[in-house]
Amino acid sequence: MTSKAENQARFGVPDNSMVFARGVRKSFGAVEVLKGIDLNVPTGSVACVIGPSGSGKSTFLRCINHLEEVSGGVLLVDGEFVGYDLRHGKLYEVNNKLLCQRRADIGMVFQSFNLFSHMTALENLIEAPIMVKGMSKAEAKDKAHALLERVGLSAKADAYPRQLSGGQQQRVAIARALAMNPKVLLFDEPTSALDPELVGEVLVVMRDLAESGMTMVVVTHEIGFAREVGDQLIFMDRGVVEERGEPREMIANPQSTRTREFLSHVL
């Protein structure tokens, strides 16, 4: 197994990098949806990915925690491949146990929330810390209550997902991801399934997280959020990064015609 330092030297990963991608490719059958994506997300920063649907941005996000296997290129989280170990110049698929350990450090928030529908909000939060990390029930509960308070839902601990609004469900889902103390949080269009008046409450929680120093990769259509919270903005189109830059600058003055076109539709 190569160490983090060896990987960093070999692939030229900058210091302080949490998510590093170079030439990431992904094909579904004959269709290539990612055609060489490069990205570096430094620890503690927020990267926002925008782009039209079908541009591959969600697929790229799912590659980061190995929900999808990459077809080519290098994708490292905290200096390590998530689904592989590099030995003698070959990528060996890691066993299930190791994959689960690494995934536990990468939180993910889904467009459709995906709260466990047979569990209350509190049970959703304590499930993985107890079953995966072996935390004691009392400790997990204390932590869960603190997290629910942080997302403003301490009163809803015993509610089932069905009894919560979309915005509340998504806030519980964020708290559930946080309960695992992840190194990085991935957001897959977290507000796209929400009624417009519920988007704000989720964005407030996300902004609070960003300010607390959480490393975040956010696939979103919320340009306002990207401008105010993002440290870098990536515009993806047809499987490539069409343009990237400092959010305010890029939104105010896009260089590529495709970016300009896209922004004119969403702004």
Binding site: N65, L67, N96, K97, C100, Q101, R102, R103, A104, D105, I106, G107, M108, F110, S112, N114, L115, F116, S117, H118, E127, A128, M131, V132, A173, R176, A177, M180
Partner: peptide, 25 residues
Amino acid sequence: SGQTEAAGSLGMNHRLILRRITLPQ
């Protein structure tokens, strides 16, 4: 399928997901 994905992203393995998430639902 989102239930399995969410459980997987929390680091739960196949057997745990089946026992704690999929079968109860």
